[in-house]
Write a protein that binds this DNA or RNA. Structure first.
Length: 490
RNA sequence: CGAGGUGUAGCGUAGUCCGGUCAGCGCACCUGCUUUGGGAGCAGGGGGUCGCAGGUUCGAAUCCUGCCACCUCGACCA
């Protein structure tokens, strides 16, 4: 591992990829735009996944799996939907390869051309709704509350590790309801769960809101989102929850019989978060020493580094540590004893800091003499000795404190970089130095488009508890219809 | 998909203008000894069809032609 990463202040984009590759989170795949999620990065994703999955199940959802392949015709059923995804779909046209005539490798066998071409799912609304049509007959079949953990493919021109790759992992919930109200409540409920997991587990503060028409999901009536501020003050959409109305029910003719024996189209929602959250985690918490992981998602929460003086001192250290390690295990703390020989402690310190481990414990002769452990926390860099008898409990509490502190730090950063602005000149000036801008908008897509063209800033969300009284639109100066957050986004 | 740029060991690179001990350096890797409280030292060692394919030449990493890949900047996106 080469020393250090490019400082954030020097080149943020490079810092980001440096951290990912040096912390061994991910690597580039052989096909352009693809990414290998390495064990350490996948460990983080697993923690995130677990937190969401638990809450989905608590709210009555079940997991299922739908196919990767979608008939091309399905994509054309919902006009807006196809419009949104057509430009980035991978298409399967053939089913076979054969040896090349010149003997060099393989070529596509022209005889295997498919009658109907197959799309690799960019999202699963269409396959799922084709199945819901089969499964839904009466109001007694509703609601259907299904989630799937899957990979999807969106053929992207410009990709970045975790943030935008041609293939990514995500979770997509697809629900069907008898009434509009129930579906709307579902989409809000899932938005709340997203906010809860981001703030409590990933320690990332988010704004919740509604997308403008321009930013809305193709095929949705309303798109709700959670937006987070990254370390370079740009916005990142961290999750979305859509109220789909009856759009997909119409497209796939999904009707149900009501209690009164009438026929009605079902109401739908869909909602998703992706491995993009790992990217968010890196950008919100990372520093010039590398990753900083909130304890609740850290694959290793405490790393223990023995300071070895001679050949048999490792044995002595292990014996000294034994009761402490047992207790850590009992409390359920994920720890690792880094007993690699021939690697200097200093190297290990830097390596585990790069990997963002929340607490480092050093144990050497001095500690064994005094019955203590020397500990350093990653979030603040603070170092302190603990009595070994009580260390496990105290470090457990320290992990909670680190979790809270990291959220507070991120929240403070966002507050310091959120500005309320009421004239366009100030808006333009502010947007150039980054951050979120809170202001009025007349609701006209033309003003939104003009602002985007002139400043590259987009409406990240329409605030849910907006206050429009006496506000005017930042662009047109007409009375504001909405209070919104503008920012440059990923 | 438009405009620039770059391809030399796993990574980063020197050399390319001016063909001829130019295939070198740093990191990483392997072996041994000494080390170990903030990226250890010394000694030895392995690894490269110089992006690919042609061409010019006695001779090409170096010159010419074509292709491919990647990066940066613009339009589209979770």
């Amino acid at each position: 591992m080469a020393k250090g990463v490019t400082p954030k202040s020097e080149d943020y984009a490079r810092w980001y990829t440096d951290v990912i590759t040096k912390a061994e989170m991910a690597d580039y795949g052989p096909v352009k735009g693809t990414m290998v999620i390495r064990p350490y990065g996948y460990g983080v994703w697993e923690s995130i996944k677990e937190a969401f999955d638990k809450r989905f199940k608590e709210t009555g959802h079940v997991n299922a799996y739908f196919p990767l392949f979608i008939p091309k015709s399905f994509l054309s059923r919902e006009a807006d939907h196809i419009e949104g995804f057509a430009k980035e779909c991978a298409v399967v046209t053939h089913s076979r390869l054969k040896s090349a005539p010149d003997g060099n490798g393989v070529v596509v066998d022209p005889d295997s051309k498919l009658e109907e071409e197959i799309i690799v799912r960019p999202t699963s609304e269409t396959v799922i709704w084709s199945m819901y049509k089969k499964w839904i007959n009466s109001y007694r079949d509703l609601p259907i509350l299904i989630n799937q953990w899957a990979n999807v493919v969106r053929w992207e021109m410009r990709t970045r590790l975790f943030l935008r790759t041609s293939e990514f992992l995500w979770q997509e919930g697809h629900t069907a309801h008898a009434t509009e109200q129930e579906a709307r409540e579902e989409s809000i409920q899932m938005l709340d769960i997203y906010q809860e997991v981001l703030e409590q587990i990933l320690a990332i503060p988010v704004l919740t809101g509604l997308k403008s028409e321009a930013e809305r999901f193709a095929g949705a009536v309303d798109t709700y989102c959670i937006e987070a501020m990254m370390g370079d003050k740009r916005a990142l959409q961290a999750g979305t929850s859509h109220y789909l109305g009856q759009n997909f029910a119409k497209a796939f003719d999904v009707k149900f019989q009501t209690e009164n024996n009438t026929e009605e189209l079902v109401y739908a929602t869909s909602w998703g978060v992706s491995t993009r959250l790992v990217g968010a985690l890196i950008m919100v918490h990372g520093d010039d020493k590398g990753l900083r992981l909130p304890p609740k998602v850290a694959p290793v929460q405490i790393v223990i580094i023995p300071i070895i003086k001679n050949d048999n001192s490792l044995d002595a250290i292990e014996k000294f540590l034994e009761p402490f390690l047992t207790e850590l295990g009992e409390i359920g703390i994920r720890f690792k004893l880094d007993d690699r020989q021939k690697i200097s402690p200093g190297f290990k310190f830097n390596e585990w800091e790069m990997k963002g481990v929340p607490i480092r414990v050093e144990v050497g002769p001095r500690d064994m003499e005094g019955g203590t452990l020397f500990c350093a926390r990653r979030d603040t860099g603070e170092k302190k000795s603990y009595e070994i008898e009580s260390a496990a409990t105290e470090l457990g509490q320290l992990l909670d404190e680190i979790q809270t502190n990291m959220f507070e730090q991120a929240l403070k950063f966002r507050s310091e970089n959120t500005f309320t602005v009421d004239n366009y000149d100030e808006f333009k000036k502010q947007i150039n130095s980054g951050g979120f801008i809170r202001c009025g908008w007349d609701g006209n897509p033309d003003s939104e488009a003009a602002i985007k063209k002139e400043t590259k800033a987009t409406i990240r969300c329409i605030l849910l508890n907006e206050k429009t009284k006496d506000k005017k639109c930042i662009y047109s100066e007409n009375p504001a219809k909405h209070e919104v957050i503008f920012a440059r986004a990923y």
